[in-house]
Design a protein around this nucleic acid. Structure first.
Lengths: 204, 204
DNA sequence: AATCAATCTTGACACTGTCAAAATAGAGGA
DNA sequence: TCCTCTATTTTGACAGTGTCAAGATTGATT
């Protein structure tokens, strides 16, 4: 039946399509990705991709999924430093890493958290799962940071997580969308944001 | 020559186009606006709009400009309350009003601060001017809030303005892009954000 | 070797933005 | 009044787009 997933004519079309598509959007943004151009690049006909992705939307969702996985890895690698750094240092490092990811994978980031999928399109079920899991991880971390005194432990962690993520996301967007344009500034603004968000009730 | 601006065949095509275009994007988002559909709606041929707007991009910029003007009015109306409210109340009111605008004029907001214009397209010179002026107003207000103790007066006001605006913008985006979906929550998150941003060094 | 379903291609349709050239109609001057 | 000039609008065309329906191919299974 369908135990072995290897396609028939092409080596592994689904994978190739994903790779080529990622290349295309990395080159010139989501606008640079058309099914036809993609099919051309891979060497199949215009409608071949439709046997591996229901939609263009489904293709974009698959790319976004890959992005979440990649981002998860990055976050994991910071968690590993948990014992070596102080809570504020850890938080700042997280923020800067998050921003670096958004910068280096601009277009993927846009797909992951942009309206293209979440509003205009219909997010795939698996994408919804993976993204929810991602937020849950952030929530856990926020709880740790609350215990570490970084955030107010009195406040509901859900709200704190939402607020702080929104602040971070907003910065990334302003940069990624071309409103803030100086990359040098971004890290400065980020550090400032960190200081503003950190609970300062007991600093004196 | 061109002292009287009244067009020849149509009543005032430029204005009509802007109105109809705003309607179209309010109905179904930016994706719902095509030059051809727009021309149809107004009752002219497909290419007529090109004599009033160089590009589709130019048309979008014009809509965004209107958005900035409308937003400015709202902000003005809050400035008027400056004497009646305390600084924290004023700040919170500003934030909630900003969010309400982003909510009620979702698509316009997207145009004003989205990549469609600022990254993918080329922002019109007049749009650049009007938006810079808008940020400058925010900057002034931040300085007032710094003097009022809402924000840390030690920090450079530019950075504070950038950080706080990013936080606000991020929240609007997450909501407008369909990631946060519960409008009830939004105001809650906003208030939480306000509390987190407010300088708390002297609360005890 | 025959069958069958997964995979891929060809053709078609209704859209899109925008350019070039032709048509129109109003304003200003004779 | 008529004529000309220029701003405005239209028609035709081109190269794109996503995706559906129907046919062709091909590898695996019986």
């Amino acid at each position: 039946m369908n135990k072995v997933k290897k396609p028939y004519h092409h080596g592994d079309l689904r994978e190739s399509l994903l790779d080529a598509a990622t290349d295309l959007i990395a080159e010139g943004g989501v606008d640079n990705l058309s099914i036809r151009k993609l099919a051309d690049k891979v060497g199949v006909s215009r409608t071949a991709p439709y046997h591996h992705f229901k939609d263009k939307n489904a293709l974009l969702c698959a790319i976004a999924e890959q992005g979440f996985l990649k981002q998860d890895e990055l976050v994991e690698s910071i968690s590993a430093l948990q014992s070596k750094l102080s809570a504020p240092e850890l938080f700042e490092k997280y923020v800067l890493t998050y921003i670096r990811f958004a910068d280096e994978e601009k277009e993927t980031y846009d797909l992951m958290y942009g309206r293209e999928i979440w509003k205009s399109g219909e997010p795939t079920e698996s994408l919804q799962l993976i993204s929810k899991n991602c937020f849950r991880n952030w929530l856990k971390w926020v709880e740790v940071l609350q215990q570490g005194g970084i955030f107010d432990p009195e406040k509901p962690s859900l709200r704190v997580a939402q607020s702080s993520w929104a602040a971070l996301h907003g910065l990334c967007r302003l940069f990624n969308d071309g409103i803030y344009i100086d990359r040098e500034d971004i890290d400065e603004i980020a550090k400032n944001t960190v200081h503003m968000l950190i609970n300062q009730q007991r600093t004196d």
